[in-house]
Write a protein that binds this DNA or RNA. Structure first.
Length: 562
RNA sequence: GCGCCUGUAGCUCAGUGGAUAGAGCGUCUGCCUCCGGAGCAGAAGGUCGGGGGUUCGAAUCCCUUCAGGCGCACCA
């Protein structure tokens, strides 16, 4: 019996109580689905619900009286062993061992499908993340979004959404001018210009640009006039830098469906289209020679200039056009992931969303992630792109590997600042919980290999009532939760919940494995294979399936051996 | 000054109104004759930053206060 079925049984019990007059409740007070949860204490059964506590007042009765009535009705359901009323009016529900154990076979049979759910079904989601300017390698802050964003995309897709991963490629502004003049200066052997970029990568890119130009049969950019050279370094440098970024992300396991160029918004007329529409809708006004968007109508703390008095579009005009473009491409939910240093953008972009008649928080969702700080020897490492002292995505991967890096970044709430200790990551890799989870997975695989050796075969038997040991029901209970964890991670846009769940599941598995020498999925060498062995192998494989599925949602490998 | 995020065990962090607040690391004590000890069992360790409030019930919601992080452009 799944929690969904149990919830349905509770709803039915409520409806029956209302129908025969036992319970006086207005129809709209009956919840569509009754919330059930895993109690913290094992003695409190497999599932618990507080529905009697919530409804008693509305029904003019006491929680315990209502709970007693529901308990009697619920106990009639097949698959439910007992229902107890506890404390102020909780219902503690215990399932038949057989009904609970059946889950092991269900999971193995569903395989990679187990955990998929329809909580986001039918929603078209555009998920934009990283979007770092191509003026340098992706640094550590961007890596967090690569890990969290890609994992979120996987989780949303597993929850039924149609997801597009998008990277907004800022190739239009002063940052790019600074980048190209820095390349030019490097090629000319001059120091980096004021407000320019330094660092070894600038010299490398500059050299690569020259080599590319010569290889293409073009004039060596160093022999061009400064203006022409600047343009050559801009075009080829951005292309080079962006290719490197894409490669780094690919090596990190992150690939985007769309790389969207800011330039294209200006060239295609999308900016004018968006501004015209806002003006036609009366959302703009002119003042001091500039065109403003009245964002204060929708909660922003000041109105925003969208066309500057010199006639150029302000930066936000690009974001406005970009949002409208996404909506016109048919996306219901436009999600943007930003670092905390850009959170000042939230209010104005929500106002932009509302200005188009859309719903902020739905059509436009902005996820803010707090900063990643680097620590070495207990001291913060100060990074500067200009000075070239950055720790890049490649540096991180070189130090700890993709799995450990992705897992470490994805297992924390985005609301938390992260301190990454470089010494710790490089030297004491075993402190990373990813190995705990991966080890559990490879252990399930080791059990499978031994089962094959000793002739324990799944298809020979499955008797769910044999999975009645305390550590087995704990494990089954954990496995039951998985689809809801995925759905919850999708709804809340919080991938770390999947990682935390996997750690708990791995712990339950290790406990079961070590609990009792007799609880084995394989016989001893001089022992015959029994149905208990075969049935436990189903459970072992169910755990393997869920660990593999969950790690897959995090973009972390599930090794068969370590 | 205003806004957002954070404050939970020695450290790093989970816990979207429920029962006795959890995990990893670290410390201490046990557990390998056979499925992987990168593991397990147990112990010690808590004013959930402080103070009010709402509620049958608050780490969780509201107010206030303290501390830290990050922002408050006709820059991008």
């Amino acid at each position: 019996m799944t929690p969904t079925e149990l919830s349905g049984a509770l709803s039915a019990a409520l409806a029956a109580a209302v129908a025969d007059g036992t319970l006086q409740l207005p129809a709209d007070a009956i919840p569509a689905s009754v919330h059930v949860e895993r109690p913290r204490q094992r003695e409190h059964g497999d599932w618990a619900t507080n529905v009697a506590l919530q409804l008693a007042k509305k029904a003019g009765t006491t929680p315990r009286a209502l709970a007693e009535d529901l308990a009697a009705r619920l106990a009639e359901n097949a698959g439910i062993a007992s229902v107890d009323v506890a404390g102020p009016g909780f219902l503690n529900i215990t399932l038949d061992a057989g009904a609970a154990g059946e889950l092991a076979r269900t999971i193995v049979q569903q395989g990679a499908q187990y955990g998929r759910n329809d909580s986001e079904a039918g929603t078209r989601i555009n998920l934009e993340f990283v979007s770092a300017n191509p003026t340098g390698p992706i640094h550590i802050g961007g890596v967090r979004w690569a890990a969290v964003g890609d994992s979120l995309a996987r989780i949303l897709a597993a929850s039924g959404a149609e997801v597009e991963r998008e990277y907004y490629f800022n190739d239009h502004g002063a940052q790019i001018d600074r980048f190209s003049s820095s390349l030019l200066a490097s090629a000319q052997g001059k120091p980096a210009p004021e407000n320019g970029y330094g660092g070894a990568y600038i010299a490398e890119i500059a050299e690569a640009v020259i080599a590319d130009a010569i290889a293409d049969g073009d004039t060596d950019p160093r022999e061009l006039s400064d203006d022409e050279a600047q343009e050559a370094f801009r075009a080829r440098g951005v292309e080079r830098m962006f290719a490197e970024i894409k490669q780094s992300l690919h090596d990190f396991g992150v690939d985007f469906d769309v790389y969207f160029h800011e330039d294209s918004l200006h060239e295609s007329g999308a900016v004018k289209h968006a501004v015209d529409r806002l003006t036609a809708d009366g959302r703009t006004f002119e003042k001091d020679g500039a065109l403003w968007l009245r964002t204060t109508d929708f909660g922003d703390d000041k109105d925003r200039v969208i066309i500057k008095s010199d006639g150029d579009a302000a930066y936000i005009a690009g974001d406005i056009a970009y949002y409208l473009d996404k909506r016109e491409r048919g996306f219901d939910d436009v999600i943007i992931m930003l670092g905390a240093d850009h959170h000042g953008y939230v209010a104005r972009m929500m106002a932009v969303c509302a200005s188009f008649g859309d719903t902020p928080g739905k059509n436009m969702q902005i996820l803010i992630g707090q900063m990643v700080n680097l620590v070495r020897d207990g001291q913060p490492v100060r990074m500067s792109k200009r000075a070239g002292t950055v720790v890049t995505i490649d540096d991180l991967v070189d130090a700890v590997g993709v799995d450990a890096a992705r897992y470490a970044l994805a297992r924390s709430s985005a609301d938390q600042n992260i301190d990454l200790d470089l010494d710790l990551l490089a030297s004491q890799k075993n402190e990373n919980p990813v190995y705990y989870v991966q080890y559990a997975h490879s252990r399930t695989c080791a059990v499978d290999r031994n089962a094959a050796d000793r002739g324990v075969r799944l298809e020979d038997a499955f008797d769910p009532a044999l999975l009645s040991h305390e550590s087995e029901s704990a494990l089954l209970g954990r496995l039951t939760e998985y689809p809801r964890i995925v759905a919850q991670a999708a709804e809340l846009r919080e991938p770390h919940r999947v990682a935390r769940y996997l750690e708990a599941l791995a712990g339950d598995y290790h406990s079961w494995y070590n609990d009792d020498a007799k609880l084995r999925a394989n016989p001893y060498p001089d022992e015959a294979v029994t149905d208990a062995h075969r049935t436990r192998l189903w459970l072992n494989d169910a755990v393997r399936t869920v660990l593999a599925n969950g790690l897959g949602l995090l973009g972390v490998s599930a090794p068969e051996r370590m």
